Amino acid sequence: MADHILEVRNLKKYFNVGHGNVLKAVDNVSFSIKRGETFGLVGESGCGKSTTGRTIIRLYEATDGQVLFNGEDVHALRGSKLRDFNRNMQMVFQDPYASLNPRMTVGDIIAEGIDIHGLFTGRKRRERVVELLRTVGLNEEHASRFPHEFSGGQRQRIGIARALAIEPQFIIADEPISALDVSIQAQVVNLFKRLQKERGLTYLFIAHDLAMVKHISDRIGVMYLGALVETAEANELYRKPLHPYTQALLSAIPIPDPEVERKRERIILQGDVPSPINPPSGCRFRTRCPKAMPECATHVPEWKEVENDHFVACHLYS
């Protein structure tokens, strides 16, 4: 698909956790992202969304499946092609406190990729760092400071500047706002949107906050226990969620209007998320699903396009 910058096909990432047990963190996940769009990946903590991002960018090697970036299989790249891939795909991490080296100045943190790829030296390197700092709303004098001198929101801006330094085409933002104060979250999301508009970036935006994801995403994928259960255009997903899990997640989003909030039905899921070491048979969500049927225990639901570009894996639609 020429207009797709990324295609993920039947991706699996399993971890051996001892005593013959295998943790199926990502299990047969498929989706694609068009050039210039933002694909939001949401779900509860532990559903495998961060592992999906890290496997796409090759921080983890895939157990099975394919990741195609600009038509090339990411996990088969070697030499100069791998180097080009590393330049074109960057990551912004969840924890702005842990992701920056405390012993390096901000200027050197931002310039690390520039140095590795040999893009600029001397005065031009310095000018590039200053330009990046200004791009993310920081000042020239911040370059000589260390990470501990900054707030969480400022550190995340430094992380974004570092990701932008080598002019990537694609950025994986792994829960980039979850560690920030609510007052700062909107600023960082708006920064992502502005940079996308100015630079034509493509994003995989990973988060568990569905309300915030709607503001930045063109399309959204919902994950549960290592598998995708639904994908749709953002407004369509919020207007007409099909999967019972998506419906439950959306029912938990606070609504500012007390009258509407009082009238709407809140779906409370029973029980805990099962272990990915021993997921339920058939549909993984069946143990917590208010609409579970006998066949949910025996058959894995088919991934199906129910409406135009609206896919769901649920026996209610088979």
Rank of each mutant, 00 (worst) to 15 (best):
H4W: 12
G200I: 07
N70F: 10
Q247W: 12
D108H: 15
Q185W: 04
P254M: 00
V42R: 01
N16D: 15
K49Y: 05
H142P: 09
A313R: 06
E307K: 08
D115W: 08
L250S: 09
G43A: 01
L195C: 06
E141P: 15
R87I: 04
M223F: 14
H148G: 07
V260I: 14
A62K: 01
V29C: 07
E261R: 12
D27R: 00
I160L: 03
V300Q: 13
A2Q: 15
C314F: 04
R9Y: 13
Q156S: 00
P274Q: 09
R87C: 08
H215A: 03
P276M: 02
N190C: 05
V22Y: 11
N16L: 04
F146V: 02
L242F: 11
R266C: 14
P96T: 01
R9K: 04
R194D: 13
Y60D: 07
K49Q: 06
A227K: 12
S251Y: 09
E230S: 06
F285P: 04
E37Y: 12
A62D: 09
K240V: 14
Q185K: 01
L316W: 13
P290G: 02
A313K: 06
R239P: 13
E295Y: 12
A98R: 04
R155V: 03
A163Q: 01
R194H: 09
R54K: 11
E233V: 11
L195F: 12
E127T: 08
